[in-house]
Amino acid sequence: MGGDAAGPVPNDQHDFALWEKRVDALMILGSARGHFTVDGLRRCLEDMGEQAFEDMTYYERWVASVNQNFVEAGVYTLEELGAKMAEVKARGDTYGAAQDA
């Protein structure tokens, strides 16, 4: 990335969505609990490969990395995550509706 050729710097700006801010908070609180460091966050981002940087948004990559770090640290298992994601999805079709009531 550093030193590669690229086009003009885009100057779009958006307000972060609530779920994106929450991902940021999960990273900070998770590392404050000692489960990983910023280096761990970045290692997983680097491991995703170039295509992830084309296809995923910034906080999508972050949530994937935060998850990978928690699983590696043994905080929860992929089975636990899968079960919880199914439960969340069954609650509703929008981010708002899928929150725990």
């Binding site: 929450r22 994937a64 998850n67 995550l81």
Partner: peptide
């Protein structure tokens, strides 16, 4: 990915 965020947060 939003689903994953909710799930991680609730598990934690």
């Amino acid at each position: 990915w939003q689903t994953m965020e909710i799930a991680i947060r609730e598990i934690m």
